[in-house]
Simulated scan of single mutants.
Amino acid sequence: MRVAIAGAGAVGRSIAAELVENGHEVLLIDKDSKAIDVDAIPRAEWMLADACEIASLDEVGLDRCHVVVAATGDDKVNLVVSLLAKTEYGVPRVVARVNDPVNEWLFDESWGVDVAVSTPRLLSALVEEAVSVGDLVRLMTFRRGQANLVEWTLPPSAPLIGKRVGSVSWPPDTALVVILRDGRVIVPSPDDPLEGGDELLFVAAPEVEEQLRALLLRGSQPPSDQAAAAGAR
């Protein structure tokens, strides 16, 4: 997979190093010559260029990239890079860094952003996840599909403990994707029982999060939600 990263600062270099280590082809772009440090990641391709200029993006062959990461420290630049990558070069996947949470509402499909990553929001979510038991924590939003990655840690007295995953009537547009248990990552099957202390990771549509919270708290959806779920199926 070929990935272009706009912004060769600490964040961009860290992302590049991980991707290169995982066998991907990485291009780092920055207009600041001080940020170009080939020795830092010798297996990456480096380009001194302005990622907001079409001539520069033509030169680096952005249309050959599968993913573009807008990782500069300037939200305006990240939005422009995202929009150009999606509309001018048809890049399939665009990930953008949000520096100021006030600007987060801008980072959506209208600006070409598929996934917006807000470091302050992510850190806040991780803090909540670390201290919250028995409450739904939103970890990440997937813009294109309008779905969220949410986490719930089952307390010891949760009503769903002992039930099999396949026997639970999860809300529509909800998928239990991973169970974290005793340091293990479990891809759930219908016959797997739920245990106290399980960290459940769901991908769910925003509008069903309250149904999911009610189900995890009470062990069943409210009657109106059950009817809606049955109608959706």
Rank of each mutant, 00 (worst) to 15 (best):
I5K: 03
A8P: 13
G9H: 13
A10Q: 13
G12M: 02
G12H: 03
E21L: 13
H24K: 15
V26K: 03
V26S: 10
I29P: 05
D30G: 07
D32G: 06
K34M: 11
V38R: 08
D39A: 07
D39Q: 05
R43E: 10
R43S: 13
M47P: 05
D50M: 09
C52H: 04
E53F: 08
S56V: 04
S56C: 05
E59I: 07
V60D: 13
G61S: 07
L62G: 03
H66R: 01
V67E: 10
V68M: 07
V77I: 03
V81R: 08
L84S: 04
K86L: 08
K86D: 03
T87L: 11
V91F: 09
P92V: 11
D100I: 02
V102R: 05
N103M: 14
W105H: 11
D108N: 13
D108F: 09
W111D: 04
V113G: 00
V117A: 07
S118W: 01
T119I: 05
R121W: 03
L122T: 01
S124Y: 05
V127S: 14
V127H: 09
E128T: 12
G134P: 10
G134H: 07
L136K: 06
L139Y: 08
R144Q: 03
G145T: 15
Q146K: 10
A147E: 04
N148F: 04
W152C: 04
T153G: 02
L154I: 04
P159R: 00
L160W: 06
L160T: 11
G162I: 06
R164S: 11
R164Q: 12
S167E: 12
W170G: 03
W170L: 05
P172H: 05
P172F: 12
T174C: 14
L176K: 10
V178A: 05
I179P: 02
I179C: 05
R181C: 03
D182R: 10
V185L: 11
V185N: 10
P188H: 01
S189L: 12
S189D: 14
D191T: 09
P193L: 04
P193D: 09
D198R: 08
L201N: 04
F202H: 00
F202D: 01
A204V: 02
V208T: 11
E209P: 11
E209R: 09
L212M: 11
R218T: 06
S220K: 14
S220D: 12
P223H: 14
Q226N: 12
R233A: 13
